[in-house]
Simulated assay, not measured.
Amino acid sequence: MSALEDIQKYAPGASAAVVGEMEKVYALALQNADARLVSYGDSAELALVRENFVKGKLGVTDSDASIDEAIATVGDQVPGHKQRLTVYYLLAAHYGKLGVFGG
């Protein structure tokens, strides 16, 4: 299943152009099978999602607790294995920041 197909299960109107741009930006990470998934059982990884993606890439300045809540909400939306691009897309959509990727 492509990244776009996975994302569209949770965001039916997901933009193919935005997903394509995300695939380009995260191409190196996506080459590693382990890095393609976000481990919601690893608090250190979730902190990296908060710091590097939500704060760093999206520029969100909310409190850590608020961002952690948004990350948890996305995790609850996506059962089973959580594809990194799906988590990132849903977080970007949550914060109205798809424009960071051209959307």
Results as ranks from 00 to 15, higher is better:
2 S>E: 12
4 L>H: 03
6 D>E: 15
7 I>C: 01
8 Q>D: 00
9 K>A: 03
11 A>G: 05
11 A>D: 10
11 A>I: 07
12 P>A: 02
12 P>T: 08
14 A>C: 03
14 A>N: 03
14 A>L: 02
16 A>C: 03
16 A>Q: 03
17 A>H: 05
17 A>N: 12
18 V>F: 03
18 V>S: 02
18 V>R: 00
19 V>E: 01
19 V>N: 04
19 V>Q: 05
21 E>L: 12
23 E>F: 05
24 K>I: 03
24 K>H: 08
25 V>S: 06
26 Y>G: 04
26 Y>I: 07
27 A>Y: 01
27 A>H: 04
29 A>C: 13
31 Q>H: 07
31 Q>C: 03
32 N>S: 14
33 A>R: 06
33 A>K: 04
35 A>M: 10
35 A>I: 06
35 A>Q: 10
35 A>K: 10
36 R>A: 01
36 R>C: 09
37 L>Y: 07
37 L>K: 15
38 V>K: 07
38 V>C: 02
39 S>A: 13
40 Y>K: 03
42 D>C: 08
43 S>R: 05
45 E>P: 00
45 E>Q: 07
45 E>D: 10
46 L>Y: 11
46 L>D: 12
47 A>C: 13
47 A>G: 14
47 A>M: 11
48 L>P: 11
49 V>A: 09
49 V>D: 00
50 R>N: 07
50 R>C: 02
53 F>T: 01
53 F>K: 00
54 V>H: 04
54 V>Q: 05
54 V>L: 08
55 K>W: 13
56 G>N: 08
57 K>H: 11
57 K>D: 09
58 L>A: 02
60 V>D: 00
62 D>C: 04
62 D>W: 12
65 A>S: 06
